[in-house]
Structures are given as structure tokens and as C-alpha cells.
Design a protein around this nucleic acid. Sequence first.
DNA 1: GCACGATTGTGAATCCAATTCATATATTTC
DNA 2: GAAATATATGAATTGGATTCACAATCGTGC
Lengths: 301, 301
Amino acid sequence: MYLELRHFRTLRAIQQAGGLARAADILNTTQSALSHQVAGLEDQVGMELFVRRSKPMRLSAAGIRMLRVAERILPEIAGLEEEFRALLSGKTGRLHIAIQCHACFDWLFPVLEMFRHAWPEVDVDIRAGLAFDSFPALLREEVDLVISSNPELLPGVTFNPLFDYHPTFVASSKNPLAAKAVIEAEDFRDQVLITYPVARDKLDIFTELLTEARVEPRAQRAVELTAVILMLVGSDRGVAVLPDWVIRDVKSNADYVTRPLGPGVITKRLFAATRDEDAARPFMAHFLRLGRSEPVKLQRE
Amino acid sequence: MYLELRHFRTLRAIQQAGGLARAADILNTTQSALSHQVAGLEDQVGMELFVRRSKPMRLSAAGIRMLRVAERILPEIAGLEEEFRALLSGKTGRLHIAIQCHACFDWLFPVLEMFRHAWPEVDVDIRAGLAFDSFPALLREEVDLVISSNPELLPGVTFNPLFDYHPTFVASSKNPLAAKAVIEAEDFRDQVLITYPVARDKLDIFTELLTEARVEPRAQRAVELTAVILMLVGSDRGVAVLPDWVIRDVKSNADYVTRPLGPGVITKRLFAATRDEDAARPFMAHFLRLGRSEPVKLQRE
DNA sequence: GCACGATTGTGAATCCAATTCATATATTTC
DNA sequence: GAAATATATGAATTGGATTCACAATCGTGC
């Protein structure tokens, strides 16, 4: 039995129009076409869907059952078409974000909150699980945007710069290093270093300082949550290096000291990687604008 | 945008099979056909429904939205097809009954109760509204069975005899006529006659007795409900003639007397009119069997 | 009851769109 | 890098849906 939407549309039209001939007008076809079509359909299902004893033909009991299905299905289709049109016009879409940098939650969340209000139709999500191969995931359209500080040369991917940050040293005010104005690589040799649980080539402190200086901290401890890292640092169980926007909460706290890394000033840049074809979409452009301006504002507060 | 079920089926198959080639097997077609079809579909909606960057192609964000609709719609269609199959095999169907005779509720209800249990899938209903043109309604398939005691010669309609009944006189035991053993036409001349509110040619007392005898009762009062008629008769506000099966409730009641009409015994036969093509359907045959036997049993109780 | 208008059915011809076949291209895997 | 797997493409073909012209039927008004 090969029912098709055409059949449902015809059925509904005949019902609405109250007859074949008028239905043909609605559907922009001929009365004959519908007659053939209905005959074929009735052949398919093996029974009469219409009663022809009275002249404008009417639905039979079986036809009414089919009509009920038509009236559940066709609006569903119409809705989908509407959705597609909205998708094309750019009012709606999907913004699933992968974050490579653990600490990015901190500024991303407020930014997404703002975004959500401006684009309520866009399906928003943050995916933390795929820190590793987030770029392949981007290309596969499993996600639509990747927050990263390590731009790569990838065909089909645009790296949109967001803002700069400084990986910043944070320690307990009781820690001996609190006495120094600038923290250098050698200072880590007798410290316990607390980091996020990711590979070293994704950790600023290593890529920007320790690896090159060939310095190994006394110990390294991996901790998932930023709040827990700060807690451990506060009780002098170790030191950490975090983006400065994360530090702002403890800057004014007497238990902590924050110090720049040195000798030179270390600046890193955060990027939002998008697929080329998406970069121009209105909501995407808006998100990128928010992602450039809002975190900077947040930090000034 | 001309979406068709074919597109939804293809989409679902590709998702299930995890690729074009395997989907082609499921749908009993070639990989090429699906490739062309998908290309055409994407042309229609104006965007890519699949991501081809990785090799077994996967749904894009837009494709997933369409898939969701597919998964709501396709089971709906499958359900309808199942319903059609059941309709064909005769397990299910519709039995909307029109009753010309007001009093038929009394035996029809218990019969329908029995029927409902045997054929739970059949859509049962009683329609009282169209006493007049119930035969045209039968031919238009607005109803599927008409209870009538006036068989007509109608092409396409079968009149299945159900059972015989006797229009029976009922009056208060205080009524003078209670003294007579048999009630004849002349006896009505000085009585108030209570009937259902229908035309005289549908009322047994007129068609079988008074019309021919040219007797006019002192007054006629039309009452809708059988219970009310009996109440009025009980308080001697009038007399009535009702089918004997209705009388059985008051037969043993000392307030009422019931008497045969005469001089000859008057017997009427009730028929169930069906469309020719329906008469053989299993559930219809079953209903007719019940309609022949059950009312007789009820009356013996 | 007849005639006219409206409505549906039918068959042949036509058209168009979907499929097939053969093959090219691209990706993954080992 | 070769083999295997997966998708795309283009031309040819097919078959189902539509059109056209007309027949058949029904409903209505006079």
C-alpha cells in the first residue's frame, strides 16, 4: 500500500471543497487528474473512500478515517516547511558550542544568556564532552562553533578572534611566591601545580612557559572545576595559572594573590571557530559580536 | 516546496541504515535513486539536509528537524494502513444505527452492549435525529443500519427481518377500557391518545387500526420519552399503544392494564435495513443475529 | 418529465519525474 | 598506496500521473 502525501492533500481538498471539480481548482490541477488519482488510491487500499451515490461525492466511513490522519499529518508538514523557511531566512537555526578551554564557561554562560533573549528561536547548547576532536565535530556539523585559543589552518573553518586574555598566576597569600611581583618559569619548580584535566599542549602554563623553559613543577594535580581549583589554591595546597577573567572573583580577596607571568607579558587570544558558510548567518554574526564585547565588559565590573 | 512521504521514508531509512547505500537496500531501490532523490529534496528545501564531509553521510541540523517530523508522521501512516487492513479483513468497521421507531432504544441498547464486547474495534453509534430520511442517509453512508418496520423496495438496500411484535394497548387500571378484553378502533373515540411525536403514518395505532377505521381519538398528545408516556398513562391522563416489548415493565404493575388490539391479532415485523454490500460483513451478520435473538429473550424474562 | 447545467468517469495520448545503469569521484581502512 | 566502501553524476529508460476530449450520470428548475 503506497500512500503518498498527494493522496492526503487530495482527500482534504475534496472534503473542503465539497467535490472533485472544486478540489481540482484548489490543487491547481484538473478534475480528471483527481478522478484518476482517487480511483488509483481506492485501488491501493482496496475499498471505496468515497460514496458516489449522491452527486457531489462524499467521504465514506473509511475515507473519514483517512481524513482524520490527513488532518493530523498535513499541518505537521506545513509546520516543517515553515521551519525551513525560517531557517533559510536566518531567523532560526542551531548554535551548539564546543569549548576546548574549561574555564570558558565563566564568560560563555552570561553571553549565551544574552543571546538567548535576542534569538529565542535558535536552539542553543554547550557541549563539553568533546574537547579533543572538536574541530572534526565542527566539520561534521555535530557542533556549530568551537571556542579555542589554538587556531589551526583548516579548510572550511573560519577562526573569528574574540578577545585577548593573560594567563595569570594565582596563589595563596601565604605562599612564598606572594612576595614576588612577577612569576617566572623557575618559580614553579618547587610548587604543586593545579590544572584542568587536559593534555599539556592545551594548558597555557605549559605551552607558554614551562615547556620551553623545560621546567617541571614539583607535582601536578588535575582538577575539573574552577571553583575547586580556587578552593585548593586558597588553602595553599597548590598554585594555579588561570585566564584573568576567572581570577576577577578572587582579586579583591585577601586570601589570594594574583601575579602576572613573566619575564615578558604573555597574551593569548581566544577564537570562535565556525564553518565558513555559517559565519555570515545573522544570529552567528550576532553571537560573535557578543563574544567580542561582553567578556571585556564583564571583566571591567 | 513539494515534500512527499517518499522523502520522509528515505530520510528515516538513511538515518536507520547509517548511509545511502544501506538505505537503498531497506527501501528496495538503488543507491543512485536515493542520491538523486536526496539531491532533489535538498534543492526543494533550499539547503543541505545531510553533511557529506565525513563519508557515511549524516543528517545536518536541518535534516534532524525533518527527521523528527518523519518519526511523528510515518507511524501515523502505518497506523492508518493497519486500520485499512483491519477494515478489509472485517475485524473493524463502523456501525452507526438510525432508528425510525422511538421505542427501539429499549431493546437496542442491551443488544448493542453485547455487540460492543464481541467487536470492540467496531465504531458503534445510535443516531436518533434523522428518523425522516434515514434511508437516504443509509445510501449516503451517513449511517450503516436503519431499524424500521416499514420495508420499502430500495435498490442497494436489504431488509433483514428481526422479530415480530404486537402493538399493545396500555391504560390505567382505572380507565373504563380496562374492563374490555380486546381494544378496538371505536374504543379510542373518547380517549386521549398519547404517542411519540412523529407523523401518523409512522405510528402503528394509526396505520394498523384508526386510519382504516376512520376513527379520530378525542385528543392526541405527543410525548418524546417512553417513560413519560407510561407515567401519563399510569395517572390516567391518556392511553397509549406501544410495542409489547416496552410494555413488559408495567405488565406486572397493578396500576396498568395491557390489552391486545383487535378484532384481529395485529402483528408487525421489525427490519434492519443495510446496504447490500455490508450485509455479508462478519460484524454486521453478528449484529443481525443478535438483533433477531436477543430481544425475544429479553421479552421472556 | 424533460432539459440543461453541473459533476464525475473513462480511455488514449502525453508528459514529466523518478529510477536505472554505467561510471566517475571521494573517503576510509588496512 | 591499494582495496574497499560510499556517494555523485549523466544519459537513457520507464512508468505513473496528468491532460484532453468526451461519455455518463445526477440534480434542479420550469
